[in-house]
Design a protein around this nucleic acid. Structure first.
Lengths: 337, 337
DNA sequence: CTTGGCACTCGGGAACACGGAGTGCTAGAC
DNA sequence: GTCTAGCACTCCGTGTTCCCGAGTGCCAAG
């Protein structure tokens, strides 16, 4: 059905359309890519490709434009991920290496990815659920208030101010901190609830109200944000492109954590480190956009996802190369810290 | 020069233009606002206003549009800040009260302000420089690494992982923590450098390398971010409006912390809690946009600034009301925590 | 000083023509 | 059977013209 040459024609159409943003016609195609055949032949192939739904024409007597299905075939079979240049790689490395804390890593990553791809970059914060407790800190602030600080092995820090039901002396707090740490240190966050379940019973009765309050806040902290935080950058890159769905919808989705989450995470397949590409109508919301995403984190310990979002008419090989490279580097950085 | 009626005409022009987005003509003006005079008279007044540069006409034989100077006069003398409705006030209160930590307060504030004004909201994080140390924490992570956590009275938390030059035992760390806290607790951040200056000398010689490392990181933390962090929300609200300078520039500025900082902060007058309005060309960058901003924080202790950014053609009274109200509420929330 | 009248000016939309790029089809060449 | 050349056809987009209407500026009268 689709012989070699038809595939070559499709590839050429995608490439030309992506770079020129204009429907591509048979004549220009036969010239620019040396297909060794005449425009008429190309036309026949195009007719076949259109028949099968890979391309379409905006109007009679205009050139052809790839459909979502066409892009899909292109991504799956006709293109190779394009590796970054040496200069780009070095730039990534030095830029990410300068980060001082987790926030900074995420911030720099998203900026970098946006700049590299000239699209909107999206990065999910490393999930708490799969990480482990590195340290729990209780800081007395005043007689009735303590601050709970939870530090994970990914460098994430969560803090809460807790209003205690009664006055608790500082050395009791210190003791409780020691108990908590001995109990939780190094444990996976998802195990925390069961690990602290019997804690009140193992402590003096007079401490129980305070302990209960603290634990409830701790548990709340764990469930509340576990993988919700997402940041984006590069919105300015949307200004030029025109979206089927309207710019407004895209901007709204970007600020809606939940939607963004779905777009990025929906595709957590069994191999999360693989590149995921979702094209146009394959997306749950935002039908007019494409998303190139992947997981990051070292090896088996996948932390979260990152990727870029852009118009379906994007340069997939380059974008995929950038996403993959950035994911690798940020994984390295996080593993090292 | 500008009698009562001319001012009324200017006010009417601004109001009509803001609500309709179309140049307003003499006839419509005389009808809609009951000015008790004929269109011809209004035309004479308009000619005078144009002569003085308060309004302009896009083309001959089109209606008039306010200039930046016209908006300025409107804001300064012709309008009153419009207070929020009771329902809006209650909504603000409950929405902000639900915040769990500083990040959350800032996040909710910026979302709220964007939604309330249907513009882009911008909020600067409470500055470190004017706040005080609430607690310093040193958490041993491994033999050669500790985490430094700095908690301020505004609820801000900064943390850094520090690589020590040599192995330091845990009880030395604990001692150092105690010393640091007794030395810094409650002190203004700007005083920290001098307060820790002689610290190495007051400690055993063997600790000095480690202390020096830790202090240098601490000082770095203080200067690095002191008032740079700014977040925005509501970019989707830009989709409809058209900017003189082009949407792309606005989006770029929003992601450039430095530019945003200048836009928001340039106007730190001697009374920072006052509403600041910058109209169009009065802005350093982004000539085509207006900014309504104010400081927040309780009374004399101004923490940072917040505001909204939109097209010069915006509803100033309403926007100013919303900005002022949100600033007040967030000040309350922060003072209480 | 205000008002009604009037001539003038443009901007923008509708109608129209036209050139060009691109297509589909068919008949002939390899 | 597959490729190629030629040809008629179809629209898109652009440029042109025309016209209407909203709005103005000016003038003379109340």
């Amino acid at each position: 059905m689709l012989d070699e040459r038809k595939l070559a024609v499709l590839r050429a159409i995608v490439e030309d359309y992506v770079s020129t943003n204009e429907p591509v016609g048979s004549k220009a195609l036969a010239e620019r890519h040396n297909l060794k055949v005449s425009p008429a032949t190309v036309r026949n192939d195009m007719a076949a490709l259109e028949e099968d739904g890979y391309i379409t024409q905006p109007h009679t007597s205009a050139g052809r434009v790839p459909t979502d299905k066409g892009y899909r075939l292109f991504v799956d079979r006709l293109s190779q991920v394009k590796p970054l240049s040496g200069a780009e790689r070095r730039a990534i490395e030095t830029f990410l290496a300068g980060a001082v804390d987790l926030d900074d890593v995420v911030f720099r990553t998203v900026r970098l990815l946006a700049q590299l791809t000239r699209q909107v970059a999206v990065v999910q914060y490393p999930t708490l659920t799969r990480s482990t407790v590195r340290h729990v800190e209780l800081v007395p602030l005043s007689e009735r208030r303590v601050m709970l600080v939870l530090i994970t092995n990914t460098g994430r820090v969560e803090q809460r101010v807790i209003e205690l039901p009664e006055v608790v002396e500082d050395d009791r707090i210190a003791h409780l901190r020691a108990v908590l740490n001995s109990c939780l240190d190094g444990c996976g966050l998802s195990n925390v609830p069961e690990l602290v379940a019997d804690l009140p019973e193992r402590l003096p009765a007079e401490d129980r109200p305070a302990v209960a309050t603290i634990l409830s806040v701790l548990l709340e902290t764990l469930v509340e944000r576990h993988d919700e935080k997402i940041v984006f950058a590069g919105a300015a890159n949307l200004a030029g492109a025109d979206f089927a769905t309207g710019l407004r919808d895209v901007l709204e989705a970007l600020e809606e954590q939940v939607v963004l989450m779905r777009l990025l995470g929906e595709t957590s397949t069994d191999t999360p480190s693989a590149l995921t590409v979702r094209i146009g109508s394959e997306n749950p919301y935002l039908r007019g956009t494409s998303i190139v995403a992947t997981g990051y984190g070292s090896g088996d310990n996948q932390l979260a996802r990152l990727g870029v979002l852009g118009p379906t008419r994007m340069d997939y090989p380059v974008t995929m190369g950038a996403v993959r490279a950035v994911a690798r580097y940020v994984s390295q950085i996080l593993a090292a810290s």
